[in-house]
Amino acid sequence: MFVSQPSLSAGIKKLEKELDATLFERGGRTVLLTPAGHLFQERARAIVAEYQSVRQDLQQLKDKPTLRIATLHSIRGNSIAELISKFHKQYPNVFIELCNGCLPDLQDWLEQGKADLALTWLREQDDDQNSQFLFHQPLALAVPSNHTFAQIKSACLADLNEQPYIKRLNCEFWQLYPKLFDQAGVIPHMVYASNNEEWVISLIQAGVGMSIMPVWDDLTHITYIPMTDLSLSRTIGLQWRRQQNFDVVNWFRNFVVEQDWQVACSSLCQKADMQLDKSLPSQE
């Protein structure tokens, strides 16, 4: 055991005192375990085995680190998948866990340590020391490409009156819409409501209805119409816990900032911004 006999005896006595139990029968040259000693021996062997198992798991975690990424419901899955695919090619040993939720969910998961990074909406009050800007994204009216609205250059809220509308339940601005519709005297014809962004996109493409949503550049059969009396936008970026300093988190942060897809999204959004009425105050 690489321990001197006196030190071993002292350690056993200290353990018996801590447990308030006699572990050995000491008589002459014979030392036997007491019933308490047999019980403790059995449990101690299990503890040692579990400890060795934990050490093995920790080594595996070191060799194959896990990165837990939380994303907004309203950020399209294909954009995230493309990003993850590129990251995996550069860091093939990293195991990635993805989960998505609403803005409050992402904030809670970060604070509680259930997520290492969040791909989320950055607001003015967010701390620059634990966030990284990625791209700016305006919101516009998305309509089926065969809809009559697809031929107009812009629209206003009043144009939505009695039009088939798809409600995006996970939109960051959902609390704002009822008030805006009411002020404009608009009663959209709600035909569908979903907390899944891909479902909303598919329904618009199928001609079911229209919706005010973020502008994406790779959608087919959808036309974006700037709103002349509505100027909404969001800033998408990464967030993390300031005290966190995991290597895998730093790898992903640096990787994302260097990606070309960020530039492509920014270019798209600048183009869409040019269509919006610049005279309107931002409600971001």
Rank of each mutant, 00 (worst) to 15 (best):
S131I: 13
L122E: 00
S194T: 09
A140T: 03
V186M: 07
L110K: 02
V94N: 02
L103G: 04
L106R: 02
L117K: 03
Q183G: 04
H136A: 11
S85T: 10
L203G: 01
L139Y: 13
Y91K: 07
E162Q: 07
L106M: 09
Y91R: 10
D128N: 05
S85H: 11
L122M: 13
E82Y: 09
Y192T: 06
W199K: 12
Q137G: 02
T120P: 01
L141T: 01
Q132T: 15
R123F: 10
Q151C: 05
P138L: 06
P164A: 15
P92C: 15
Q175M: 12
H189F: 11
H189N: 14
P104V: 12
P188D: 03
P178I: 08
N100E: 15
K179Y: 08
L139K: 03
L157G: 01
A193Y: 05
L110R: 03
L122S: 03
L169Y: 03
G101L: 14
R123T: 13
Q90P: 03
I201G: 01
I152R: 10
A193S: 08
G185C: 08
Y165G: 01
H147G: 05
D159E: 10
P138A: 05
I152Q: 08
Y192M: 08
E124S: 10
V94Q: 03
Q183A: 07
K179P: 00
E97R: 12
I152C: 09
Y192C: 06
F133P: 00
A158L: 13
W121I: 09
Y177H: 07
V143E: 00
Q129D: 13
A158E: 13
E162F: 14
A150G: 02
L157Y: 00
S145G: 06
